[in-house]
Every structure is written in structure tokens, then in C-alpha cells.
Design a protein around this nucleic acid. Structure first.
Lengths: 203, 203
DNA sequence: TGTGAAAATAAACACTGTTCAGTATATTTG
DNA sequence: CAAATATACTGAACAGTGTTTATTTTCACA
């Protein structure tokens, strides 16, 4: 009865094959290049075959989002090693922004691209994203507990910091900084990060 | 020689007709519904005719962005009437966020939708956007001049505030606040706005 | 080796943006 | 007014998209 197990395995391998092809297309040529037909061609199968392994395109996109979420987690979580909650929070923020700057395509996919409805049902991705988000809010809570802020409204503090970081990255990612010369944008982002850190010290 | 003038006028009317149809489709059914064929059908012309008045689709999108920019300007500029620069700045921010919340589709078009290259060449839209942006930075400058901030780095202050406001709106617009119950999102946004105002007072 | 199930596909449908050859309409000229 | 020209418009096609269905191929098992 090892056959059904092998079949199961092969099915999983095929899903992986499709996903890797999608991921490669995405990273090499951008989201627009990720079409069912492109994926099919690159793995030398017919487009219809894709539908035997993924319900539709948004399910593939959803899977790509999970990949992106994993890369993001690996990028930011080293901050967890820092004992001091305030330093941990700052390092987390720095790493969050750095992730967005280094992987604009992945950041876009995670936080800007219109989420397909399946996103919600993609428990994996949601769970992973929430784990990182929880780490963030818990760190803010730790800062609150140790009186790093005057305010004790953890939720609003966390959200406000997130707004700034997300705004920072997404203005960059979607090219809304044209009024600043290109060589200055990175510098301005760094200055702004430093400023929000200073501001946060006096919430 | 009034004929060429009439022709000119008719050409302009046709461009307007196309744009209005595009705008209606956009507002009624979203950006995805704005297809050349949909526009053509709704004004009862052939799709090919559209191309006699607009170079391509991105030129139409660009024109839509201009419309959105005008709505935004009308929404935020009443703040200019306020004498006190700090109050003016706060009111501007409030109106900016309010615009995004009330017109998520327009905000999306202006600040999130991937800008077609023509955006840069769309002098009208760029000029209009820059005028509002200049008003914003000048207001920040006025605050700096009157020592409302400790910092004198106008550029970074302005950018930091913008980051927060944009992050606030765009997390909302692109539905990245699912971890908060829906009825709480608006409230959280307001609290966060109040918090950044407080924080700004101590830059 | 034949049979039933599983896997893969060709072909079609309904869309998309865009181009171009050809037609219809309006204006200018003889 | 009629013929020639210029302008406005369109049908049809091309290449692409996501998706579905009927059909064929492949494979495991009796």
C-alpha cells in the first residue's frame, strides 16, 4: 500500500514544482510575468494541468505570499535575540524597513498587492504573519511594562509605529518619492526612521 | 476659419466623453472595470476610436489620476485658511487622512496604484500634486520657523508625518488591518492620528 | 492482457490592450 | 454641384490573459 503514499508525495512534489516556477518567474520578471501559461510552459506542462493542483491563480498567489512571509520572518526575527525591549523594538523596526527596501517585490506582495479572498483562508500565511506581528506587539507591550513610554496604550503605539514603517516602505516601493532626488531617498528614509525612534521615546 | 476651432472643440469634447465614461466605470465598478472595451461600449463607439483620442490606456489612467488629484486638493486645501501654522498642519493631516478614508478608490489611484510612466509626463497631475505637497512642506516650514518643533530639519519632519499618514490610509485601503475587528479600525486610526500629533509636538 | 481509475491535455470561451486596413463621413477644391 | 481629398470611424485581427470541459494518454491492478 505504498502506492497511495507515493502518489501523495508526487502530488506534493508537483505543487512544489509549480510554486517554484511561479516564484522564479515572480523574482525574475515580476508579478505580471506570473501567468498560468508562463508557469505551465516553464515546467513543460499544459496550462490545464496547473488547475489539477491549484484551484485557481489566486491560490498560487496566496502560496507565494506565504513564501514572502517566510523570507520576511527570517529577515526580522533575529531581533528577538535582543534582551532589552526598547533596543529589540528599534532593531525590529530597522529590520522591517530593511526587508522592504531589500525585497520591494516581496514587500509589495505581502502588504500592498490586493489580497485575494483566499488570503484569509491561507491559514499558514496568516498564522505566520500574525506570529511576527504578535512578536512586534509583545515587544511594544514589554516596553510599556518597563515604562519606556509615558502612554500605556500598547495597541495604538504599536499601530502608530507600524503605520510609519509601512508608509516609509510603501512610498518607496510604489515610487511616490519622485519629488526627492533618487540618491537622497534612502538617506531620507534613514533620517525619518531615526526621527520616529526619537519621537517614540516621548510618547 | 471657425471650422478648425470647432474641430478642436469637438476633439476636446470627445476626450471629455471618454474620460467621463472611464471615471464613471471606475467609481461604479472599480479600476478593473475600466477597460478600453468597456469605455467604448458605454459611449457607443468602437474600441479603436478610443485610440484616436488617447495614446493608450495608461494615458487614460493618468487622466483619471489628475481627476483624483483635483478631488484631493479640494478636500484638503480648506486647511489653508487656518492662520496658525501648527493648527493648519494638524487640520491638513486630518483632511488628508479623511480624504483617504472617504475615497479609498481615489487614494489608491493616487498613491498606491503602480504609476504608469506617463504619470511623470502628465505635467498637470504632477504640478497639482506638487502644489498640495508644497503647501504641506511650507506649513511644516512655518512651524519650524515659529519653533513649534525642537528639530529644524523641515524635510525629515514633513516626510515622517507623511509616512505615518500614508501608512495609516494605505493599510486601511489595502485591507491590512484584518487583525483588528472592523468596527475598531476607524477608532484605532483616529487614536493613532492623535498620537502622532502628540508625538510631533516633541520632535 | 484487459479494465477502470487517474493524470494530462487540446481546444474552446470570454476576456484584455492594441494595431491596421478599409469604409464612411465631412470638407475643400475644380 | 461633382470630384477629390482629408478626417473620423470601425471590423477584424494579433497576442495575450484566466478558466473549463471533453478527450486522450498513462498507469495500477485483477
Amino acid at each position: 500500500m505504498g502506492i497511495i503514499e507515493r502518489k501523495e508525495r508526487e502530488k506534493e512534489e508537483m505543487r512544489r514544482l509549480i510554486l517554484d516556477a511561479a516564484l522564479r518567474l515572480f523574482r525574475e520578471k515580476g508579478l505580471d510575468a506570473v501567468s498560468i501559461r508562463n508557469i505551465a510552459e516553464s515546467i513543460e506542462y499544459s496550462p490545464a494541468t496547473i488547475y489539477l493542483y491549484y484551484k485557481d491563480k489566486s491560490e498560487i498567489l496566496s502560496a507565494l505570499q506565504y513564501e514572502a512571509a517566510a523570507v520576511k520572518r527570517d529577515h526580522v526575527m533575529p531581533a528577538a535575540a535582543i534582551e532589552n525591549p526598547w533596543e529589540r523594538l528599534v532593531e525590529f523596526g530597522r529590520r522591517y524597513v530593511d526587508f522592504g527596501m531589500k525585497h520591494p517585490d516581496l514587500y509589495d506582495l505581502l502588504f500592498i498587492t490586493r489580497a485575494p479572498m483566499e488570503f484569509i483562508e491561507n491559514q499558514q500565511c496568516w498564522t505566520l504573519g500574525m506570529a511576527v506581528h504578535s512578536f512586534f506587539t509583545e515587544t511594544v507591550q514589554a516596553c510599556v511594562d518597563q515604562r519606556y513610554f509615558k502612554s500605556t496604550d500598547t495597541e495604538t503605539i504599536a499601530y502608530t509605529l507600524w503605520c510609519h514603517a509601512h508608509g516609509l516602505v510603501s512610498l518607496f516601493v510604489r515610487e511616490r518619492m519622485r519629488m526627492y532626488p533618487e540618491e537622497k531617498r534612502q538617506e531620507l528614509a534613514q533620517k525619518s526612521f531615526a526621527m520616529i525612534v526619537k519621537m517614540a521615546e516621548s510618547i
